[in-house]
Design a protein around this nucleic acid. Structure first.
Length: 503
RNA sequence: GGCGCUGUGGCCGAGUGGCUAGGCAGAGGUCUGCAAAACCUUUUACAGCGGUUCGAAUCCGCUCAGCGCCUCCA
């Protein structure tokens, strides 16, 4: 039986606000779209959390055996700076500040984004389309929406007609908003006079001659509206109806609501069938955001060079920390919890390493109960992951498995009664879930000089063994203590052997 | 003002009508020349007040505290 059938996935669907069994449109294939970054500044840890959350979804779907097309866009045009900067988008604004070509800004922060994704072991999507690369498609999309009567042109700009749309469809379903409540609460923005209704949003904005990023269109020179690209590119690469659309909670309104309206308005299909929203990373209970000034860059995280950080933390520690909570809950960042996560992460890594050198199972009389008991945590981890990607629960199960591995490593006789089939299945998936699904790896084993160090350590341990053998404890302790001071922990083992770990 | 969310033991953080979450920290023990690690045992819970129920941390109501979206945001 395939893992897909054995562990059916259920997803909390933001659209219906219910947990639903996941059934892809096409058997064993999944189309998934995630709203990517706007590349006008460095990504911070809060952004990382969202992309990591959906990295788990991507990885887990693949692990179960789905063929996944994962599309995650790069927004390189279109987001307005604010009401004071009407008609000027973020990329262009930044370009002027830094005296750069807009596409230079885009390239710089796109590179930075990719570097951060690699650092946290977040996998590349199947397709990473850019908004500027799909201007033609966006113009065509707008034409169709106008043709369907859900948009109108005013003075070189095109707006989506929310009220007209709402007569035929339901605007506000995703975000739980009532169109009439919204009307009285809409803030007065400049440029609203071009709209027939304050609720309407731009599909195409006219650009002045001085605007740095602009393209010709049937409505004159301009640039696409800031919700449009996701509708266009998801439709292009995944179809008018596809499986999963995900993004940060803060995009639910207006961005995703507008997206649904555009999809319906153009194609008479709502796009994604399952909507997923990742919750925010908070600092002292407040959302981490550029505007709050409480975000830090991954470099600062590693070095600890930020007022919020007591010291540096490794990327894998942070990854593990984030996976210890559920993606739909807010997660509060603190030094204490990072430090706790660091220790737990190392504990799991030690068990992972031990899992590669376990004794031969099933050499004695097989015990069905014990075999079943041995694989239970992994079975549970799958169930947990299939239950709306609950990494927090799955990790708890992995710790149960780690205990079992430690016990068998210390007492190899315990493996004798376990069915090799169950044993191998459990160990294979213990490793697989940690490495391939959670994307965790042992950082201490990676650095280039590790092989040299390993050789040196073997020599030092041999010397210490000799000192111990001749009961020169002063020397053996000195070796251990001095190494400890340098961050290397020597461990004596039962059979007289030694091993070491690096802090 | 509208829509929504959260409040769990020393800390972080799952769960959600009856069954140990887990990690970190603390205590005791086993092992060890001594450590470390591991293993075993163990202490401290569900914001407050009402209600529904045989039974609620879990459902409902109210109160308090905090947060998010409503304007770009992951």
């Amino acid at each position: 039986m395939s893992l897909i059938k054995e562990y059916p996935i259920s997803i909390f669907n933001s659209l219906t606000k219910e947990k639903e069994v996941f059934e892809p449109l096409i058997k064993d294939k999944v189309g998934m779209y995630v709203c990517g970054p706007t590349v006008y500044s460095d990504v911070h840890l809060g952004n990382v959390r969202t992309f990591m959350s959906f990295d788990i979804v991507f990885r887990y779907l693949k692990y179960l055996g789905y063929a996944v097309r994962y599309v995650r866009n790069i927004t390189d045009v279109g987001h307005l700076v604010g009401d004071a900067d009407e008609g000027e988008d973020k990329i262009a604004k930044k370009a002027r500040l830094e005296e750069l070509e807009p596409m230079e800004v885009v390239q710089k922060y796109t590179n930075g984004f990719h570097a951060v994704m690699r650092m946290f072991n977040i996998q590349e999507p199947s397709i990473e389309p850019t908004a500027t690369g799909h201007i033609i498609e966006q113009i065509e999309f707008i034409k169709t929406i106008i043709g369907n009567g859900y948009a109108y042109e005013t003075d070189g700009s095109v707006y989506f007609d929310v009220r007209k749309y709402h007569q035929d469809h339901e605007y506000g379903k995703l975000s739980g908003r009532n169109i009439d409540d919204m009307l009285s609460n809409t803030r007065t923005l400049s440029g609203q006079d071009q709209k027939r209704d304050p609720l309407d949003f731009a599909l195409w904005k006219r650009a002045d001659a001085g605007h740095l990023m602009q393209w010709p269109s049937p409505w004159g020179n301009g640039f696409p509206g800031w919700h449009l690209e996701c509708s266009v590119m998801s439709t292009k690469y995944l179809g008018t109806t596809f499986d999963i659309h995900a993004g940060g909670m803060d995009l639910k309104f207006p961005h995703h609501e507008a997206e649904i309206a555009q999809n319906q308005g153009c194609c008479s299909k709502g796009g994604a069938r399952y909507w997923m929203h990742a919750n925010m990373l908070t600092v002292e209970g407040r959302k981490m955001a550029k505007s709050e000034g409480n975000g830090f860059t991954p470099e600062q995280l590693l070095t600890g060079n930020h007022k919020l950080l007591e010291r540096g933390y490794s990327a894998m520690t942070v990854r593990f920390f984030m996976l210890m909570s559920h993606y739909a809950s807010t997660l509060d960042f603190s030094n204490e919890s990072l430090q706790a996560a660091e220790k737990g992460y190392k504990r799991l890594m030690v068990a992972l390493k031990l899992s590669e050198k376990l004794p031969e199972p099933g050499t004695g009389k097989m015990d069905k109960e014990q075999s079943k008991d041995f694989k239970a945590p992994i079975d549970k981890a799958f169930t947990d992951l299939s239950n709306d990607f609950n990494t927090a629960k799955a990790i708890a199960s992995l710790f149960d498995m780690a205990s079992k591995i430690n016990i068998i490593y210390q007492d190899p006789k315990k493996a004798a009664s376990i069915d090799p089939k169950d044993f191998d299945w459990s160990i294979m998936h213990f490793q697989g879930i940690i490495k391939d699904v959670l994307g965790l790896h042992d950082e201490t084993q990676e650095e280039g000089g590790m092989q040299v160090l390993d050789g040196v350590m073997k020599m030092v341990m041999e010397l210490r063994k000799q000192a111990k053998f001749s009961k020169d404890y002063a020397l053996s302790d000195q070796i251990r203590d001095d190494l400890k001071a340098k961050g290397v922990q020597i461990k004596d083992e039962k059979d007289g052997g030694m091993s070491y770990t690096i802090d």
